[in-house]
């Protein structure tokens, strides 16, 4: 795998901070950010920091993975519906396939999402894990 420094740099903020876009015309949000709203086509968009918790809406388990991901197999890829309704497709980490289910609460974490061998760049980004910790309790 060859990771481009320019691509890593361009995408770092949305990947690190889960920054999406909100359409000023139809009000819907999407991630990752695009130049035009995927729902109405408007280009009047503003950046928004998306909520870091949500539920798994659907998921799949990939056993035959592409080169570079063998040590991560099996990969769990889910559609996560965030608490504001935005849908994000992302890997699920710190979980085994038998533990994952539709409706499971998940939270965003920063992880290594790809790397260019032992000498190249490391790409960091947001993935999700089952919410195992109780936040904001006394």
């Amino acid at each position: 795998m060859r990771l481009s420094p320019a691509q890593i740099w361009r995408t770092r903020i949305p990947r690190y901070r889960l920054i999406g876009k909100e359409c000023k015309k139809c009000g819907r949000r999407h991630y990752p950010p695009r130049p035009a709203c995927p729902y109405c086509g408007s280009r009047e968009l503003i950046e928004v920091e998306l909520p870091r918790t949500g539920v798994i809406e659907s998921f799949t388990v990939i056993y035959t993975v592409m080169e570079g991901f063998k040590d991560r197999a099996p990969l769990i890829i889910a559609t996560v519906k965030l608490d504001d309704g935005t849908r994000v497709v992302a890997p699920i980490t710190d979980a085994e396939p038998e533990d994952v289910r539709t409706g499971m609460r998940v939270e965003a974490v920063l992880r290594r999402i790809r790397d260019d061998g032992s000498y190249g760049l490391i790409g960091y980004g947001t993935v999700f894990r089952p919410t195992i910790l109780v936040h904001k309790t006394s």
């Binding site: 991560r72 710190d94 974490v109 992880r111 999402i113």
Partner: peptide
């Protein structure tokens, strides 16, 4: 650590909790 973790990802989560 998990396969997708390193000192940066772990340090981020600790720091995120401190800011929270």
């Amino acid at each position: 650590e998990n396969v997708d973790e390193d000192s940066i990802t772990m340090g981020f989560e600790a720091a995120y909790n401190a800011i929270l």
